[in-house]
């Protein structure tokens, strides 16, 4: 794992003092985080700790109240930056898949290529079919999403997010809405992406998976980073008392 996190000159993602509050409620309270190329970072923490909000600020779906978000050195939190251009460089997968129900699986996968990156339809569809074949969903290319199981929908949603070759992939609790027997196939796909060198930031409740796949684990509590450590160290020898409490609660469940 350590070979993958070998430092590249410039991090893909750099957060500096990111703050977000809803009225009195401070959701993100000065977040500093670097993510290097090909690195897999797991965000863990209780519900409401700010994991999802943090992911949403990164692709500019959520506005920030202070701080900076740098994507390959460019400050994308600057309001003068075109948010659509930034979002096109970042892939996002949601808890509830959010596939477009009125479009075929293939159209879901190729939509961004065709509309945002102006890839000709034939070329986009060739790439899309290739991607769907690689996850065993080629037979469903012309089907509509409601014909697929939850696990298949989520895998299609992941393929949709990576179809345009984004610089960064954000996964927001991608297995939380799935029946237990369908979790495995989705995690296997995420694992293969990680092994293939995709830079990933994922919010997750799957501790075993975080331990296995992530290079680093970041523990959030009440909008602050409590601990940011290599995965092995995080689970075997956490430095912070609060991390130990959190892990103990998870192991007890």
């Amino acid at each position: 794992m350590s070979t993958r996190s070998a430092s590249v000159a410039e991090p893909v993602l750099r957060l500096r003092g990111v703050r977000r509050a809803f009225g009195e409620h401070v959701v993100l309270d000065g977040i500093d985080l670097d993510v290097a190329a090909h690195e897999v970072v797991a965000l863990v923490g209780a519900s409401g700790s700010g994991k999802s909000t943090l992911l949403r600020t990164i692709n500019l779906i959520e506005r920030i109240d202070d701080g900076e978000i740098l994507l390959r050195g460019q400050d994308v939190s600057d309001p003068r930056v075109d948010a659509d251009d930034v979002r096109a460089r970042i892939g996002v997968v949601f808890q509830h898949y959010n596939l477009f129900p009125h479009l075929s699986v293939l159209d879901n996968v190729t939509l961004a290529s065709r509309l945002v990156h102006r890839v000709p339809r034939a070329e986009a569809e060739r790439q899309g079919l290739e991607l769907l074949a690689s996850i065993g969903l080629a037979d469903f290319a012309r089907a509509f999403p409601d014909r697929l199981s939850g696990g298949q929908q989520q895998r299609a949603a992941i393929v949709r997010a990576i179809a345009t070759g984004p610089e960064l992939l954000l996964l927001d609790e991608v297995t939380s809405a799935l029946d237990p027997e369908l979790v495995g196939e989705v995690l296997a796909l995420v694992r293969s992406l990680a092994d293939g060198g995709t830079t990933i930031v994922m919010a997750t409740h799957e501790m075993a998976f975080a331990r296995e796949v992530a290079d680093r684990v970041v523990f959030l509590d009440a909008g602050r980073i409590i601990e940011d450590a290599p995965a092995r160290q995080f689970f075997e020898a956490p430095r912070e008392e609060r991390t130990r409490e959190f892990l103990a609660r998870f192991l007890a469940d």
Binding site: D84, R87, L99, F100, L111
Partner: peptide, 24 residues
């Protein structure tokens, strides 16, 4: 969430309306 997914792919407001929201 449909709008959110479309915008996250980089679609503009107009593209999201035409391709995602209005057809549904």
């Amino acid at each position: 969430s449909q709008r959110l997914a479309a915008r996250s792919l980089g679609l503009s407001h107009g593209q999201t309306m035409r391709r995602i929201v209005l057809p549904q």
